[in-house]
Design a protein around this nucleic acid. Sequence first.
DNA 1: ATGAAAGCGCTAACAT
DNA 2: ATGTTAGCGCTTTCAT
Lengths: 345, 345
Amino acid sequence: MKKLTTIYDIASALGITVSTVSRALRDFPGTSESTRKTVVDMAAKLDYRPNKLASALKSGKTYIIGIIVPSIEAHFFASIIHSIEDELKESGYSIIVCQSSESRSKEVKGLNTLLETQVDGIMASLALETTDDVSHFQEVINQNKPLILFDRVHDSLKVPTVTINDFRAGFLAASHLIEKGYKRIAFVTTSHKIKIFGERLEGYKQALRMNNMAIYQEDIILGGLSIKDGRFGVSKLLRNENRPDAIIAGDDFTALGVARKLREAGLEPPIIGVMGFANEVFSSYVSPSLSTVDQHPDLIGKECVKLFLEMIKQANPYDKLTQIIVEPTIVDRQSTRSYLEQKVV
Amino acid sequence: MKKLTTIYDIASALGITVSTVSRALRDFPGTSESTRKTVVDMAAKLDYRPNKLASALKSGKTYIIGIIVPSIEAHFFASIIHSIEDELKESGYSIIVCQSSESRSKEVKGLNTLLETQVDGIMASLALETTDDVSHFQEVINQNKPLILFDRVHDSLKVPTVTINDFRAGFLAASHLIEKGYKRIAFVTTSHKIKIFGERLEGYKQALRMNNMAIYQEDIILGGLSIKDGRFGVSKLLRNENRPDAIIAGDDFTALGVARKLREAGLEPPIIGVMGFANEVFSSYVSPSLSTVDQHPDLIGKECVKLFLEMIKQANPYDKLTQIIVEPTIVDRQSTRSYLEQKVV
DNA sequence: ATGAAAGCGCTAACAT
DNA sequence: ATGTTAGCGCTTTCAT
């Protein structure tokens, strides 16, 4: 590593002191315009680059935000991160990304790294494994550092959150199918006790109730979320005495598995309708194209940044615990083609 | 921000000095086991967390690697980042991610941020806009900091690289189509002068030559890479007097656009075959499923980390400029169904 | 408007 | 095996 230019080099080259240089570089009130200009010029000439570490160590602000997500490969999270970085860079922040891979221990490790790096704030979406013990996040709050939870949040952490209205997401998904004429709607989702999945299920139940449709326990398949799990869910459902005529899956991957298995069984939509969650990139291109619930990841990211910027403005970041709720939207595609229309035709 | 525990707190609580604490915490050779234990215990008791900034400022090592990619939303790059983070965290490094959004100025800005953050090394894949002037990266080399370029590399930067064999990727794609019996193969790709795209085109030409097939300039459409560009490319090709019977697209998104437009024109595979590059998540699920070239992003990430770890071991990181070349693989799916077989049936 | 000097939390000679 | 001390490069009082 070569020796880099410091403010001392600029100072001595100009015969002034470092404090003047430091102030001039950050155009502090109380610096003559002329010295400001000479300093800036000399800085450019010497190819000076500020050392963020030193400034951070002194000032206590790193201008780095830590982000913890289950996986960066899930398009939903990638979109959120994309959006966060975009919004944040205007305020001069950069981001450090950690992946939990749905494991609690990796989440803890990542969090510790972020804390040790002295990030100015943390935005996180919980690992599936992190359901009851979220004490590791408590430390962030204790340090009075902004912590924002998004999507996969947890009630016992008293922090600002950004979620989609998952109850409504489940409600909308079921209502959409009901509108299209489907009569018995199953739900294939995860057995993990993450709040958002529970809420979706509740929304689904509420929709059924409001339409005087019975809720059958055998129609609710709790397993995992993946293409494979979707296929598996269908197998299970088809073994039941009374078959559903529509299936909601916990995410688009699972929905894809459901659709594929249905096609193999000769029961593809509209015989049995399918809905997913997340509006993945592939969802509009598969065949049949997948109706789904758009969770607006870009909005989620934007709101996280807004919350963060508000939090650092306050003396106590946890003064008000704003809960942002992003409203989901139905994306209507072929996999929920109207059963009614089909019958008529 | 609360006052956090420092090694001074541990030292005074134990009536020893900070240097002993510092050494004990990093179990230095020359620390009695007994003090090591008392120190570690006290550290735990006081909930001590090392301040990476301070240590980095002193030692010159942040244990942070900067990554610059065009977009985190492209699955190819997300996979690479995922793989890099995975490999790197075993050695105690974390990553800062910057997105160039294919813009040179954003790339420069991101790079500066990384440099100011004093990252221990940088891994980057160039923005489409960054074709001739790559001088901003020269600074990294001047600082004698490890810089590794992957996928979108540049000849004028004398640094280790990890690429796929793009010539061979193009060659394999064309050869695959030729094997399947296609007779006139077009290529829809980007007009940007990024090396890898040029190489793919050359590989394609080589395959044609080796099979005594003529290369028609009108069959090579230079535009952008996107679903829309794919559709546009097809429109152009179909306007030519002599139509191709197969189309290679610069990436899977473009290939998807090509396939969609072909279907609308009633010319879907195997009438006109289609190949893409990247093996995106959706590629196996669209209809027809997309034959493509797998670029093995996980391997690319792994190799980047290997290179980096080697570089920091050497006195001069740029002693040897290893060029890792990952071999691409053909993924054979429906969009290149054998034309020959179809004819027979 | 500028300078002097202390110190952020840690590491690493150099002592002992 | 442990202590002393001088920084790393910057910010920030407090003087002038």
